[in-house]
Amino acid sequence: MSGVAPALGAPPPSDAGGAGGAGGAGGEPRDPAHRARPATRLDRLRARRGWRTLLGSVVPVSWAVTLLLVPYVLLLAQSFWRLRDGVITHELTTENYRRLFGTPLYPATILYSAGVALRVTVISLALSYPLAYVLAFKVRRHRTLMYMAVIIPLWVSYLVRAYAWKIILGQDGILNGLLLSVGLIRAPLTVLLYSTAAVVVALTHIYTPFTLMPIYAVLDAIPVSLREASQDLYAGRWRTWLHVTLPLSLPGVVAGCTFAFVLSMGDFLAPQLLGGNDSALMVSNLVWSLFGVAFNWPLGAAVSVVMLALTLALLAVAGAVEARGRYGQVATGAVAEYAGPI
């Protein structure tokens, strides 16, 4: 679950209120003027002392090239390699992609995964927006504490969160037990666990805090005077939300939804644990089985590359949408942190 980190760093809001608690990705308040801060004269002076620059950048840059760039490029290269009798040869071929798009199963898998991810995204948004709204605007005391309470689950083991649903939804699980004891059903429901719905519920549970954090960050950064100005200009609470709060919170919504979508689409453990036969239909599970079971790495690489391309395309779109929706004084979401200009 290495996709989790950016939002985790978001700082708790200050109880004192005010505009101080703006959190972008990486979690720090971010002054747009600062984003592209050019190197100062002192920097250039230093940079001229070449060895220092070299020493400073050689380790991180070569590290990133060796352990990130090369592996990702290798994955791309591998997707064009041929598997012959279970052995990878370095002959170039488009066979993997032809097979990927030629077999109905694979595009169907991608669509199914996107469908699951979309449902998770929509539900996460529906759950987290009201909570973020209450946290940002309604909670007066112990705001830090309550915000912490929302993000604590992010620090709790992923497996624990996924597995809890097995206890709840299982045939002998709590939900069945409760339903039986109140007499709503006569025999335990077996459809609860090992279904797409179970996967969607668990993934929603796991990723809702990710959706919540950027939304909270933008809501918290909206100056209270803007909402007051709207009320002063004859808009009631509903219209104030519609015309002022909602448009200004869109960057956070975009960032939160992107998180939920990308992370749940890339998840392969919860589907395997809770999804039963459907689980094989998630694209990440496909990658997993092509690499771990079928040992068809080139085809697995091709599926990964498609996934990678879809993810990057989504991020680019989200980043652009988010950048358009930013108005200086409102904090940036995490997507812009990645997709925005340096």
Partner: peptide
């Protein structure tokens, strides 16, 4: 520091944050 490819470096470093872990996993395995 300013150096050519700085933006690319930044994006590269941040990539594992944003990509599904499984992609980073299979790339490194390869």
């Amino acid at each position: 520091f300013d150096f050519p490819g700085k933006a690319a470096f930044r994006r590269l470093v941040l990539l594992p944050l944003i990509l599904p872990g499984i992609i980073t996993g299979v790339s490194l395995l390869s």
